[in-house]
Design a protein around this nucleic acid. Structure first.
Lengths: 158, 158
DNA sequence: TTCAATATTCATAAATTTGTGAAACGGGCG
DNA sequence: CGCCCGTTTCACAAATTTATGAATATTGAA
């Protein structure tokens, strides 16, 4: 019951720092974590600005980014234009590279390198083929892993 | 036999761009791809600088980074100071987040949030618990996936 | 329709990241 | 022992990213 807001602020900022180090933009990461630990279902842009000491413009840009990658959902509030931003159930899955086509793209580039080298026995060709195989493996397996997670969640709902 | 250097240069730059978009530093990504497609076993710092039009200083910093994350290996050349940089067999595995403790760290932060909220039925606590569960899942399963890949390689070497 | 409140856009400022050149360093060879 | 080549370090410059403030647009209510 004793909601420890100091500890929560630390979790928000430290987790956001980790996500940022992993290539995630900073303010979006902080928003993501803030929406995670909030009491209610979601927060308005103004509330996010207050909580994070960020300008309305910065919040606007960051939530636009989060929406395009599917990490937040904008929910209209009946009879008000203060829309609320909420995390969908699968927000964390969306933060994963697995959701993006990048592994397949890299595999294709590596295959293009094999073709360009045109000497299957050369060291460069062998390395490229190895890269292609690895990313093909990931492009196939990671979606399976996510599917496995979704099945698990279905079994143990929230 | 007709090694198509123009096509290879395109593969190098485009793949590096994809890696960069995924949060990988730019020059290290270009070096990684250049070492991938080179004819021989590796390249010297000078050769990399020529190939990529980068200063010796930039190459020095980038290979230092790549070495610390285990993506390149420095091989001394007997009787010369021109060390050679080579990709180890598992270079691609090393580029993966799975190699880093970040998922476990994020899971721990999420668990800290659950404790700080101290009300297991609240929306914030439930969301935090869900985040924790997801990252715990990844922290366990991704290393298994990498292990699976290593086994596959052992079966189909080269 | 007009007012009040909120959200978005755009140009710009601040901060961070990335790469350069010059100088210092260090190992190999005469 | 001392010179030479290549590498690394350091301070600085360029480029990119990120956030701001002011102006503009949009919506709900009177």
């Amino acid at each position: 019951m004793a909601r420890d807001d100091v500890a929560l602020a630390a979790v928000v900022e430290q987790s956001a720092a980790v996500l940022t180090a992993a290539g995630f933009p900073k303010l979006p990461a902080r928003i993501l974590m803030t929406l995670l630990v909030t009491e209610g279902e979601g927060m308005t842009a103004g509330e996010l600005g207050d909580a994070l000491n960020a300008s309305a413009a910065a919040i606007s840009g960051a939530v636009r980014y989060l929406q395009t990658v599917g990490i937040v959902r904008r929910v209209a509030q009946p009879g008000s234009r203060r829309d609320r931003y909420e995390l969908p159930d699968n927000a964390w899955v969306k933060t994963m590279d697995a959701e993006r086509p990048i592994y397949g793209v890299l595999a294709s580039f590596a295959e293009a390198a094999v073709v360009a080298i045109d000497d299957p026995t050369s060291a460069g060709s062998l390395r490229s083929a190895d890269m292609a195989a690895f990313y093909r493996f990931l492009a196939e397996r990671l979606p399976q892993l996510i599917e496995e997670w979704n099945e698990l969640r279905k079994g143990n709902p929230g």
